[in-house]
């Protein structure tokens, strides 16, 4: 049985690789809290490659413009249509920034309107319980980006089920650390990633 592998999507137009530490941190959290079979390293996979379909969980991030090519769009559409899960995070945490504007434009063109994920959604109870919706990050209010607390995550939902999860909260910055650093923290800062992955793996 193939283990869960954290896949980061490679796309042509921007800096897809800006969150390269995120995979290790998420894998670390999954191992800390669950029995899931997990691959110990993440993988980078091109959006327009056939390999994409071997990894039904896909993480996308960046700071720069997101303009998918025809092949990337075709694959993404097929990927989600078949049951794949996309988690996309704005590494700028800036709703006026080029990543947010272009990424949401691309997602809307492909999948339709992005909706707010309700606070009571199953995602927030998939493993840990988040009564107030998505946990805030230290980076949202760091003086950069739009300096706002983004209360909701956005998503493409079908019959209430999230196929694409979009975040302005800059989890990519929050989770960009070496997993070893967690030993200095009382609370695992990337616990919410467990909810996201468990949700993707079971819904």
């Amino acid at each position: 049985m193939r283990p869960f592998t954290f896949a980061t999507g490679v796309y042509a137009s921007g800096d897809w690789e800006s969150g390269q530490l995120v995979s290790a941190v998420v894998i670390d959290s999954l191992a800390r809290h669950t029995d899931l079979e997990v691959s110990p390293t993440g993988i980078n996979v091109a959006l327009d490659s056939a390999e994409l379909f071997e990894y039904p969980f896909l993480y996308l991030t960046g700071h720069l413009a997101v303009r998918f090519s025809t092949g990337e769009r075709r694959n993404l559409l097929r990927f989600v249509d078949r049951g794949g899960f996309v988690f996309m995070d704005d590494h700028n945490h800036d709703i006026n920034g080029v990543f947010h504007k272009t990424a949401t434009e691309e997602l809307t063109k492909l999948f339709g309107r992005l909706e707010q994920v309700p606070t009571r959604h199953e995602l927030y109870r998939a493993f840990f319980t988040y009564e107030d919706g998505p946990p805030a990050t230290n980076h949202e209010m760091n003086g950069w980006g739009d300096n706002l607390v983004h209360e909701h995550l956005l998503g493409i939902l079908r019959d209430g089920r999230i196929d694409v999860l979009y975040s302005n909260k800059d989890y990519s910055s929050e989770w960009s650390m070496h997993p070893e650093s967690k030993r200095f923290m009382q609370v695992d800062p990337s616990r919410f990633a467990v909810n996201i992955v468990v949700y993707a793996l079971t819904r």
Partner: peptide, 12 residues
Amino acid sequence: VRLTGTEKAQVG
């Protein structure tokens, strides 16, 4: 690292 997390969970 396996199962060293101490936070409480309530799987929905």
